[in-house]
Amino acid sequence: MKKILFILVLNFLSFNCTYAANLNPEKILDNVDDIYRSNTSHGILTLAVNTTNWQRTLTLEQWSKDKNKHLIKVLKPKKEKNLSTLRVDNNVWNYMPKVKKVVKIPSSMMSYSWMGSHFTNDDLVKQSRMAKDYDFSISFEGIRDEIDIVEIICIPKKNAAVVWGKVEVVVYREDFIPLKIIYYDEDLKVSRKLEFSNIQTLDNKKMPLKMKMIPEDEPGESTTIQWQEIKFDLAISDDFFSLHNLQR
């Protein structure tokens, strides 16, 4: 009887190992990095910033091409309409329609909040790929809180320009769509959480339409991005991401 039980346990473990071996963490991380990316994209989204002192909701229109070209324009509220941000490679420009000025964001302002949210200008230009900047391994797979998930632990490489001490990426096992990303500081205390929800298929791509950033050291505060619509692989030329278009 003990022998049968041993064989059963061995079989179970080997099954799981085989199953884990089939999972490619690099592919999962790339999928998470590219969840809102494609060759090109164009969409409408809302940005809701919730702080202890004020709330603010913006409706934005965005265009992107490859991994390094983005143009974002404010549609609503009216008083901030046409406030725009252009990112090309490592450069970010803001256009302020009230004063009709284009301002290139210098390195000293990279830490400043983007549109008053909990994202910084630096978050916009970050081109880091988790698979490139981190050593990673699957730390858990299975059912947790009644959801079948895969959890990947990412530890920054020695000289990678990454502030985090550890990043936990949790995805649905079924389609590797992210459920949440937890960022830890160097002392391995939770620093911020990025939660994904409202998974739907838009333009034949399954993706979470809602993304919520929760800073751990600012209780009660969050920034939520909600996609209203998005289309991928449209024909957008490189010239579209120009300072001229930023001001239109």
């Binding site: 390195s107 000293s108 990279m110 830490s111 630096d122 830890y184 500081d185 160097e186 620093s191 050291d217």
Partner: peptide, 13 residues
């Protein structure tokens, strides 16, 4: 070099 130092806790010029 003028710039910004970032940690998980925040950023300082």
């Amino acid at each position: 070099l003028q710039g910004v130092a970032h940690t998980a806790k925040g950023s300082v010029g």
